[in-house]
């Protein structure tokens, strides 16, 4: 006899139906709306809207932002998580708090902070301007804003993964004569490769979709400093719904792609854990099927 841990069927069905309803209203309907709006005047119109020079530039700029920010945050996140998970040092909890800071600061505030520091009227901004480098209302400021916002993603994924594998393998490698790089490449990274990829995907999704912080520092210059989210906003405010939703659909497709990549990764991880030893540990046999 299975343990009686289940609610009566009626309540179970009601709960599931409720959950599906909320999910539908909050997620599925809006997603569908994006695509229907984009295709309301036909695929051709939508594609024309996407091949407008400003739209193309926004797409390219978005890809460029991700291409700059993701590798940088990959390196930062890797370094930070390696330090936190594999070493003990004074001020470690402060570092962990700092890594989480972008999560707790509103993106708009983050953008404003950058304007304060690098704006034309600030000391640093004036200095850089003197050397011909404009930060605010230009690419460097947008990159800084995106870097700030997406900083925690890789580290947040890696720290628990690295902590879970412990330090003994690294110590064993060290005793066998490996240097720091060899330990990182041959021992630490292969053990956390899926968490790393997952973190990169999340970081990428956010780098492409970030609105608030980038909006403050970009200046919304069409064909120059507009990323996809910013361009969508402008088009929408101009009642150019088809173009706005067509661009939004591109971003949505990128997000869906990321999600499916994430699912594939999770499936891979589950499959890897299905080693005989791991199976015993994770107790995948339902309780009522255990021999007694």
């Amino acid at each position: 006899m299975p343990l009686m841990l289940q609610d009566p069927p009626l309540i179970r069905r009601a709960l599931i139906a409720g959950a599906l309803l909320v999910l539908g209203i909050l997620l599925v309907v809006p997603l569908a709306a994006v695509f229907t709006e984009a295709l309301r005047l036909g695929l051709g119109t939508a594609l024309t809207a996407l091949t407008e020079p400003d739209a193309l530039h926004a797409i390219l700029l978005t890809v460029l932002m991700a291409a700059i920010c993701v590798p940088l945050n990959l390196v930062f996140g890797l370094a930070a998580s390696w330090a936190v998970a594999k070493h003990d040092f004074w001020g470690k909890s402060l570092l962990v708090t700092l890594i989480d800071l972008p999560f707790s600061v509103s993106p708009v505030i983050a953008g404003l902070m950058l304007v304060m520091v690098f704006g034309l009227h600030s000391f640093l901004g004036g200095l850089l301007e003197g050397w011909g480098l404009q930060v605010i209302f230009a690419l460097p400021g947008m990159v800084l804003a995106t870097l700030f916002i997406t900083f925690p993603f890789v580290a947040r994924e890696l720290i628990p993964a690295m902590q879970a594998t412990g330090r003994e393998e690294e110590q064993a490698a060290y005793l066998l004569g490996a240097n720091g790089w060899q330990i990182l490449w041959r021992v630490t990274l292969p053990n956390v490769r899926w968490a790393l990829l997952y973190g990169v995907l999340l970081c990428n999704a956010r780098a492409m979709g970030e609105f608030g912080a980038v909006s403050v520092v970009s200046g919304h210059i069409r064909g120059e400093t507009n990323t996809i989210p910013l361009q969508v906003e402008i088009l929408y405010n101009e009642y150019n719904f088809v173009a706005a939703f067509a661009l939004a659909a591109v971003l949505t497709l990128l997000a869906l792609l990321t999600l499916s990549a994430k699912s594939v990764i999770e499936w891979q991880v589950r499959r890897q854990r299905a080693h005989p030893e791991a199976e015993r540990l994770t107790n995948r046999v339902p309780l009522h099927q255990l021999p007694r």
Partner: peptide, 11 residues
């Protein structure tokens, strides 16, 4: 050195 839980490189 042989560690208590062996610390074999699992991959």
């Amino acid at each position: 050195m042989v560690f208590q839980h062996y610390a074999l490189f699992r991959h």
